[in-house]
Simulated assay, not measured.
Amino acid sequence: MPPTWQRVRPPQRRNTYGYADLTDQSPLLAFGHGLSYTSFDIAYIGEAEVRDGLLRTPVRVSDTGSVHGETVVQLYVRQEVAGAVQPVRRLVQFQRVALAACESADLVLEALLARLHCALPDGRRGLEHTQVAVMTGLISDNIRCVTSVPVPSTSSDTVLLMTEGSST
């Protein structure tokens, strides 16, 4: 090798879980993204409440465009304070709605509180007494309505057993 050439080591790469050639690691299209010839709006028409083991969220969806269309209303929740690590946003319910131009529809999205259960420190599945952020939108990266509701603690009799060699 000529003396003017230097042997250059390739740069060391860290283990990453994205594409190394992209500066923006967010998804190209958000969950719920779709093409439509119309536009929609969403708003709360009442207070979110927890009753009989259900989280109920009343919303109004409006087709604000000039043609009929369909959309999917998505209900997400997030535990504000938790003893265990929780997801930033958890999809717990969704509903498809077809609307004519300039039409509105009132929906009540209902989700079982059991969908919020996680492993408690004593090994049972349940939910700690906490505030839960209730988020509603049409696309996962465009949440338009956010409110908070208190949730009582619940637990089930199911005990999670972690044994050697088991996987989750």
Rank of each mutant, 00 (worst) to 15 (best):
residue 162 M to R: 08
residue 2 P to K: 15
residue 34 G to E: 01
residue 130 T to E: 05
residue 94 F to Y: 09
residue 150 P to D: 06
residue 109 L to S: 11
residue 68 H to V: 13
residue 2 P to S: 14
residue 28 L to N: 14
residue 18 G to H: 11
residue 21 D to P: 05
residue 16 T to N: 06
residue 22 L to K: 03
residue 91 L to R: 03
residue 150 P to R: 05
residue 148 S to M: 07
residue 79 Q to F: 07
residue 140 S to V: 03
residue 149 V to W: 00
residue 90 R to K: 01
residue 13 R to A: 13
residue 154 T to G: 09
residue 165 G to V: 02
residue 153 S to D: 03
residue 93 Q to M: 04
residue 92 V to K: 00
residue 71 T to I: 09
residue 24 D to A: 12
residue 144 R to T: 14
residue 43 A to D: 10
residue 65 G to K: 03
residue 113 L to V: 14
residue 118 C to Y: 03
residue 67 V to K: 10
residue 63 D to Y: 12
residue 31 F to H: 09
residue 164 E to W: 06
residue 6 Q to N: 09
residue 92 V to Y: 05
residue 163 T to Q: 07
residue 108 V to R: 07
residue 57 T to I: 11
residue 155 S to N: 13
residue 81 V to E: 09
residue 146 V to I: 15
residue 102 C to A: 14
residue 70 E to M: 04
residue 54 L to Y: 11
residue 74 Q to H: 15
residue 79 Q to R: 13
residue 66 S to V: 07
residue 147 T to I: 02
residue 6 Q to Y: 08
residue 91 L to V: 09
residue 108 V to N: 03
residue 66 S to D: 07
residue 46 G to V: 13
residue 131 Q to C: 08
residue 21 D to I: 05
residue 3 P to F: 06
residue 34 G to K: 05
residue 168 T to N: 15
residue 21 D to C: 15
residue 24 D to M: 01
residue 3 P to C: 00
residue 15 N to S: 12
residue 122 D to H: 02
residue 17 Y to Q: 13
residue 94 F to V: 04
residue 143 I to V: 04
residue 44 Y to E: 11
residue 86 Q to P: 03
residue 128 E to W: 02
residue 33 H to F: 12
residue 30 A to G: 15
residue 139 I to L: 08
residue 6 Q to R: 06
residue 114 A to M: 15
residue 40 F to R: 15
residue 5 W to R: 07
residue 67 V to F: 14
residue 112 L to S: 12
residue 90 R to C: 02
residue 26 S to W: 15
residue 100 A to I: 12
residue 115 R to G: 13
residue 114 A to V: 14
residue 161 L to T: 14
residue 83 G to Y: 12
residue 162 M to H: 02
residue 94 F to L: 13
residue 65 G to N: 12
residue 110 E to T: 15
residue 121 P to F: 07
